[in-house]
Design a protein around this nucleic acid. Structure first.
Lengths: 171, 171
DNA sequence: CCATTTCGTTTGCTCTAGCAAGTATACCGC
DNA sequence: GCGGTATACTTGCTAGAGCAAACGAAATGG
């Protein structure tokens, strides 16, 4: 477990010509996160598109709907949970709706609000796509990590999670 | 340090209704990575844009040029190192060139190849932007991690790094 | 030394993403 | 219950990203 709790070199070093850079380990952590994300999402998104005609964002919304009672959530809740802008969610729902995977329903208690309601077809597709997608993520990501590393990633990224948006279930 | 080297629950669990999901820790690790990346890059990109009129990708290219001898690299090398498509790099260089930050130079030894050459203005901007950007990353990212976590992230993400593309320096 | 293939880059197209402005509804003070 | 503000969504616009096709230049092989 390499350097544990000792203060090693400072994160940012200034080269002889005055240009600032990450020290080696910090570069590996941050630049590595960016590169790994880019690579994995590109590959996974391509596979998902090819296999089911869904984008990662689209599947994320479907999966969130599938995982909730009544398979119904307000667009703003979807946006908050998925970390997407509301406008983006609106248009993703446009696309999913055009394919018959979700339906927009007016909320009975608030006429401004729209619930995205998963259809039977949407649930079926979400299930199929999620099955292959999770396997792909496991293969490309988790299979290259050990338990300790996964625990650390989970702990770290939980720290950056948004302060849970209210789920505001409307029924 | 929670679960260490013990086989805990399997990564993918199937709910009673047949829908597959990550078990808790795996979800935190993978979904957390996606969400953290999205959040941090959005914030950092906005700051960088506001402060220096650069995108993250643009700064990444400038920084790579700044960090190399002669401040000159072929577009395909930039693309490979940055994990961007060649077409994207070509257009980012268009934009940087329009601002006088880099220049396209024909490679004397291979007329197909183009070197992106950092200008003095480009180096100055790269330096200024990198200084504030690294500080922002430290503040938003590293300051929320301890040494052990950083070491683990570095180790993990290095594993996903591309098999170093040849740098093919052309003088 | 010309034909074919390969390589490095550019360009056309499409898609995703967010912001800002617009619209409609809810809420709040009076 | 009326006017002003806040909320929930939609839409117009712009920018970033990749793929595939185009294009010019090198390399290869008769």
């Amino acid at each position: 477990m390499a350097t544990t709790s000792k203060r090693s070199s400072p994160p940012i070093v200034t080269r002889s010509d005055g240009f600032p850079e990450w020290s080696h380990e910090y570069a590996a952590a941050w630049i590595g996160l960016l590169a790994t994300h880019r690579r994995l999402t590109r590959e996974l998104d391509g596979e998902l598109e090819a296999a089911h005609g869904l984008t990662l964002s689209g599947l994320e919304l479907l999966a969130r709907l599938a995982s909730v009672l009544e398979h119904r959530l307000r667009l703003s809740v979807l946006a908050g949970e998925a970390g997407l802008s509301l406008s983006r969610v609106s248009r993703i729902v446009d696309a999913l709706e055009a394919r018959g995977l979700v339906e927009r329903q007016n909320c009975p208690t608030d006429a401004r609000a729209i619930n995205a309601q998963l259809t039977a077809a949407g649930l079926a597709l979400a299930q199929a796509a999620q099955t292959t997608h999770l396997a792909a993520v496991r293969e490309r990501f988790f299979d290259r990590l050990d338990e300790r590393e996964i625990a650390t990633l989970a702990e770290v990224f939980a720290r950056f999670a948004p302060d849970a948006p209210s789920t505001c279930s409307a029924g």
